[in-house]
Write a protein that binds this DNA or RNA. Structure first.
Lengths: 135, 135
DNA sequence: GTCCGTGCAAAGGATTTGCATAATC
DNA sequence: GATTATGCAAATCCTTTGCACGGAC
């Protein structure tokens, strides 16, 4: 399927990894939790353990294939890292996720880090609300 | 000490609650984790259980006395809610926390929510970096 | 006295780890 | 064949819950 992605990252090619990659690429909103991935693999009749999911996703994050996003309810989701940077707007009712980018916000974040003499390494901006459908 | 804060919130006054409030008020950077609070109570020779800490802090959040902030490393801290809204800049080396406010960022967040037809209920903006001292 | 708060221990959920087996290169 | 990945179960971390007791009002 996408052996290249894995080879490029210097990872061994296993079916579990390929399938997880595939799920990430095909999932509707491109955001999956470890459990979501686990259920998908089970559906595909793959005899997989949840530990493998976590290990694969951690490895993917390590080599830059995915980003991990932590939400306030202690849930984490993973998304492919091949898109440009963006932040998230989450519906707390239905879980729908919108991605957005805002140059001004990005710029101000840099300015703030500079102002406080911090070397910025990452940031997390999540907006929580209720989407149109749920209102 | 500050019975008023509790009475105003309609909470019964107990020693545990008063001491936790006190710790929140006196702590250096005004941010404490549940475990920090627990250790402080133990130091004061109070025979407290960690469950109480969580229950007290949850109650405090419920009535608006504190805000809970979730960091990406799955750590949560609590801060008094009596200050005006602000976001956080965290040093990933030493754990130091700076608070900042940025009107433009706030404004853009509202605009984004509006654009996507979301009713914004909360947001979390955390900047991670390395502070001057740790560099 | 009623109700709420607490301590303790046990349960819970998400994630990680140890170890032997299995697969990739 | 050496090394890395996997499955399983057990362990871990943080947080929550059930229950009986104690304290606040």
């Amino acid at each position: 399927m996408n052996d290249k992605d894995l080879k490029r990252a210097g990872l061994k090619i296993t079916e579990q990894r390929l399938v997880i990659l595939d799920i990430l690429k095909k999932s509707k909103n491109h955001h999956i939790s470890a459990e979501d991935a686990y259920k998908e693999l089970i559906k595909k009749d793959l005899d997989v353990g949840i530990a493998t999911i976590y290990r694969v996703l951690a490895k993917f994050e390590e080599v830059g294939i995915v980003n991990k996003i932590n939400f306030d309810n202690n849930m984490s989701v993973f998304e492919l890292a091949n898109t440009e940077h963006h932040d998230h707007l989450i519906c707390t009712e239905c879980g729908n996720i919108e991605e957005f980018t805002d140059e001004i916000i990005e710029q101000h974040q840099s300015d703030i880090a500079k102002k406080y003499n911090y070397k910025l390494t990452s940031h997390s901006l999540n907006l929580y609300g209720i989407c149109k459908n749920c209102l």
